[in-house]
């Protein structure tokens, strides 16, 4: 009984530590996405008056792409937690690494689409 409760509390601690460590990394991705969204909004705000003055087509802020970019770290973290439930610790770590890899690829993709959408031709 005691051994079982010790094992379950150790498992709970391992779950908590993994979730917190990977949660910090996912939080950094969220911070990066918000920073990029703000700097892109500032760029569009600075460029549009100049473009208007020279009679060029105005830039539009890619809301859908930036929205997905900001929401993605939260969605992937929640998915990794849900898929990793009732699995062993190494597999749970592997799922978080896989989620981070997919998040990195998707973030770079959304960044490049946002850059292409706000490019001045």
């Amino acid at each position: 009984m005691t051994m079982n409760s010790n094992r379950s509390s150790a498992g709970l601690w391992a779950t908590m530590i993994i979730a917190v460590v990977f949660g910090l990394v996912f939080a950094f991705y969220l911070y990066e996405a918000i920073s990029q969204a703000i700097s892109l909004a500032q760029y569009v705000a600075v460029q549009n008056p100049v473009l208007k003055r020279v009679g060029h087509a105005l830039l539009s802020f890619p809301w859908l792409v930036i929205g997905a970019y900001v929401v993605l770290p939260i969605v992937t973290f929640v998915l990794a937690v849900v898929i990793g439930r009732r699995r062993t610790v190494p597999i749970r770590v592997g799922i978080f690494v896989l989620a981070l890899a997919a998040l990195s690829a998707a973030s770079l993709t959304l960044e490049s689409i946002a850059s292409a959408a706000t490019r001045i031709n």
Partner: peptide
């Protein structure tokens, strides 16, 4: 992040 993005197809396939 770039390194993980590079590895992501392989990790996804085997995952």
């Amino acid at each position: 992040g770039q390194f993980l993005a590079f590895l992501s197809p392989a990790l996804w396939f085997f995952g």
